[in-house]
């Protein structure tokens, strides 16, 4: 009987050890901070996916799921973009983490073009990520919103408007900080 219990305990310990790694991955499903910061061009085409960061458990990706540009008045433009952040473990399990919708109203007027407002809407989808908007900046051509995502890092979503006379250009990008800045 003692022999049996010994064997059972040994097998149990090996089983627990073997299952420990995947258990951890399944339970947490979030990247540890491996990067301090990085400039990350957001995907520009709907359906395009880019890597945000990676760790030993998997990779956090961002996909542009929706994009639209509309004209509200003669010179008023609205650029909307929805980005889905999702995590894929080394075992192939995928899970949506959070979603960020950016909406930028701006005036297209050659050299006098300007950003009116940049709205950010963050939605937590799973994996223990929680989102808190922590800071913002606005000037005529530069605007950003900073989002603190628990267990991931700080993201600064930027709208930059280059007021070219013939073709003013608005771009949406972000910076990723592995930890809270400031």
């Amino acid at each position: 009987m003692i022999k049996f219990i010994r064997k059972f305990v040994s097998i149990l310990m090996v089983a627990v050890w073997l299952l420990n790694v995947p258990l951890t991955v399944f339970a947490e499903e979030m990247p540890e901070q491996t990067e301090q910061f990085a400039m990350k061009p957001l995907p520009k085409q709907v359906g395009e996916t880019k890597v945000v960061c990676e760790d030993e458990n998997g990779i956090l990706y961002v996909t542009l799921v929706d994009f639209s540009e509309s004209v509200t008045r003669a010179t008023n433009r609205t650029t909307d973009a929805t980005f889905l952040f999702h995590y894929k473990t080394i075992l192939g399990t995928t899970a949506d983490a959070f979603e960020v919708k950016l909406s930028c109203d701006w005036i297209e007027d050659g050299l006098n073009s300007s950003i009116i407002v940049l709205n950010g809407n963050a939605t937590t989808l799973g994996g223990g990520y929680t989102c808190t908007w922590i800071d913002s900046y606005h000037s005529q051509c530069q605007c950003w919103l900073e989002l603190d995502v628990a267990k991931s890092g700080v993201y600064r979503f930027c709208a930059l408007l280059v007021p070219l006379e013939d073709n003013p250009q608005l771009s949406l990008d972000y910076l990723y900080f592995g930890e809270i800045v400031g």
Partner: peptide, 19 residues
């Protein structure tokens, strides 16, 4: 873990003139 994460939480933020 999935159930806990399934609850969506929405936060909105704005940067506009004056902010």
């Amino acid at each position: 873990a999935g159930a806990a994460g399934g609850q969506s939480d929405e936060t909105v933020y704005t940067a506009s003139v004056g902010s």
